[in-house]
Amino acid sequence: MRAPDGPPVTSGDVLLSIDNVSLSFGGVKAISGVSFDIRKGEIRAIIGPNGAGKTSMLNIINGFYHPQQGIITFKGEARSKMRPHDAADGGIARTFQNVALFRGMSALDNIMAGRTLKMKRNMFWQMLRIGPALAEEVEHRHRVEEIIDFLKIQEIRRTPVSRLPYGLQKRVELGRALAMEPELLLLDEPMAGMNIEEKEDMSRFILDVNEHYGTTIALIEHDMGVVMDLSDRVVVLDHGIKIADGTPQEVKSNQAVIDAYLGVAH
């Protein structure tokens, strides 16, 4: 329920839509027949009890899992499955539930790695590291330093990420995703395991990213307070099925959602 003085964003163009998507592992159905869309510029939350298929949904969106059925339409292009490279190339970036940083690298190198797709000089230039290759490296370092400033992690840029506390690792991971300058940012439980202060910081970063860069955000989160405060629209999954979709207010008062969370027998 952000921006109480204005109407929530509901009228943007559709950036990504999921139509009747099903995914199973062997005989186990993870997702069955789910459809929803994400509009340009909104913050879209995906919620649901444990095992509802939320992370699998993100994995489908950025091409790590391939659904057996259904259509994914991204930026007007319909396909039956994404490939990781297409997703990344098309501007989908991602953070992970259990931090998936490159543990042997510094915070700076982790974020620089997010620039990979934007760097065009071939290996032979990189080998010599003169002229255009060096200029490119400097240019991208410049962009990365902006992100480091934005996330206020200047003093840890040289620290190997494995030595950082959990909250900072999450922040570096967000930085790595931002470095890709994504159009659609997928956040898988960005606030899991954080204390209240860290949650507030992270919420602020998410709102800032959404407002300043106009990045569309899809996020999975368990903290209902955060979800209600941040998101424009919420989709609720339970046992791989969509049970509700709408504004935070609508979802909160939906009987199916209340049942799912309180465990009432259907």
Partner: peptide, 25 residues
């Protein structure tokens, strides 16, 4: 020069967390 440049970061990313690297393109 290679290991501290773009390709070097790609190598290390693949080493440390190949799936995350792939999902980053």
């Amino acid at each position: 020069n290679l290991v501290r440049g773009n390709i070097g970061r790609q190598w290390m990313a693949t080493r440390d967390m190949d799936i995350a690297a792939e999902l980053m393109g």
